[in-house]
Write a protein that binds this DNA or RNA. Sequence first.
DNA 1: GGTGCGCGTTCTCATTTCGGCAACGAGCGA
DNA 2: TCGCTCGTTGCCGAAATGAGAACGCGCACC
Lengths: 310, 310
Amino acid sequence: MLHAAALTYFREVARARSIRRAAASLNVAASALNRQILKLEADFGTPLFDRLPGGMRLTTAGELLLRHVSETLHDFDRIRAEIDDLKLARSGHVSIAAVDSLLVDFLPRAIDRFRADFPAVNYTVTAVGPTDVVQMVAAGEVDFGFTFVSGTPASVRFLAEVPAPIGAVMRADHPLASRLVVSLEEASSYPLLTQTGPLPRASEVDPAFAAFKDALTPRLMSNSIQMLKLAIMLNMGVAFFTRLGFLSEIEAGTVAWRPMASPGINKLRLGLLAPSARAMSPPAEQLARRLADGLSRLGNEGAGYMSGSF
Amino acid sequence: MLHAAALTYFREVARARSIRRAAASLNVAASALNRQILKLEADFGTPLFDRLPGGMRLTTAGELLLRHVSETLHDFDRIRAEIDDLKLARSGHVSIAAVDSLLVDFLPRAIDRFRADFPAVNYTVTAVGPTDVVQMVAAGEVDFGFTFVSGTPASVRFLAEVPAPIGAVMRADHPLASRLVVSLEEASSYPLLTQTGPLPRASEVDPAFAAFKDALTPRLMSNSIQMLKLAIMLNMGVAFFTRLGFLSEIEAGTVAWRPMASPGINKLRLGLLAPSARAMSPPAEQLARRLADGLSRLGNEGAGYMSGSF
DNA sequence: GGTGCGCGTTCTCATTTCGGCAACGAGCGA
DNA sequence: TCGCTCGTTGCCGAAATGAGAACGCGCACC
């Protein structure tokens, strides 16, 4: 309905190489078709078809136009399908499992932006350990998950990934913040704040980092990121997290994040995890797509900035 | 006129972010615009704009649609310009200068196919030596030229190029035709047919080939390709030409063309040469474009076949 | 707290466009 | 010559479109 009927008329006449045959397959009168074709040719000022006894054949100009018309109609079908997806996604429910460092900042902000376009969607967000995320996605208990990339069963797949190295997190006026990269030795001379409970696989990935943490006694240990975050703000010491848990504080300039000079730790990646077989619900599909876009944009900016644009 | 007015209406409303402003700049009534927008939203079953006090803003679905509409209208402008070019090119005159080996087969066949779409175009085709082609194009004596690629003045440019190595040409049942590649030694044991007059730059490009030709006494020398072609058909010996002069005979299976095992000779290229500054006449423009397409297609097929399709 | 302004929207009416039907002339094959 | 199919045209009713005036609403200014 967006596009003039003349488009499909023209395309069908070109395909059928006959006005009357096209009229039959379109269920319209041949005269109507003919008039549209004649009007097009008058508009362009040049014939679009050669009239042969027994039918019509496209001229060169007609072939040019047919290409345009076909592309337009095809592209329109695609757009309409996308809009239909959006319609279905306007209300519903999405359940997500993620490692808790993402629930502090990244995921709530993403969901909030998503809410603007999909106001009637409800959410269930569960914080679990990295390996549990994979299990819950595989079991279909959640629509998708958000965790560190590692070997995964065939029943799940990664929609997007982004490098998420562990780095040193501290108040912006902490002495270590003046370093662009923090070595393990430098960090060991300051009080540390460490998280307990299910950990990202940093220790498996980077033996040097694991040994470093084992050798020291932290000033504060907690399984609550909020607790640790407050300790950082009180300048109690240095913690080790992915940047994504502190994007807004980093943006505001209140805390600093610095990469670590330890090889394996910089290979860590966060990924958006979905069941490989089952189709997601429409709103979950949309949110997952937008998160995937945002992630890959984060990735393209290297270890760059967080633009609030997704 | 091809496309529904709704397209430009929608685009302008999105641009102006207001129905009334869009109506003013389109010189239509706001009520008409409004009805089209409402109809679109009814068709899609979803709002395309958010109604804010003070104007309208696209929804997510609206942004999707705007992208489609913009692309469609932009592409349509392009197509219409191309069709206008075709209209202008329907009659007129085209003058071409080319090395004569192309006038035997390649160029006449190309012009014949072109005639089907541009029946009222007249042609002047001049056979000259390779370097004269460049001079005539530079001097503006012809619309474009067709010759071997070499260093050219800035006043001309190549629209397309295709590898055109010199090879051995002989009757299909000639003993040499059983070889896939012909070495200079093999060729020297058979009677040779050579062309006199302005030659392609084979001798400059490939000293080995030049020495080879100088060392032997050909059975037949002529400046007429027709003469040489007849000699080939009478199995008088082996000649050395680009494939393009014998495309139809090769296709028909009456003569064979085999590449030479000599390095420099396989680097020869044929090119379509046009004045760099002056615009060509519309029909010349069209023919040149089609020849360029055909040439690059020939090139993409490697040393492949001649499909009669351009 | 009016009041004016700009916004999208709705209603009515004249105009234009579109599609269906029947008929015509041309080309082609039996 | 007849019969068939082709594109095309005239005529008529139906549907879509646009112009203009009016309505309800939110907002800023006095």
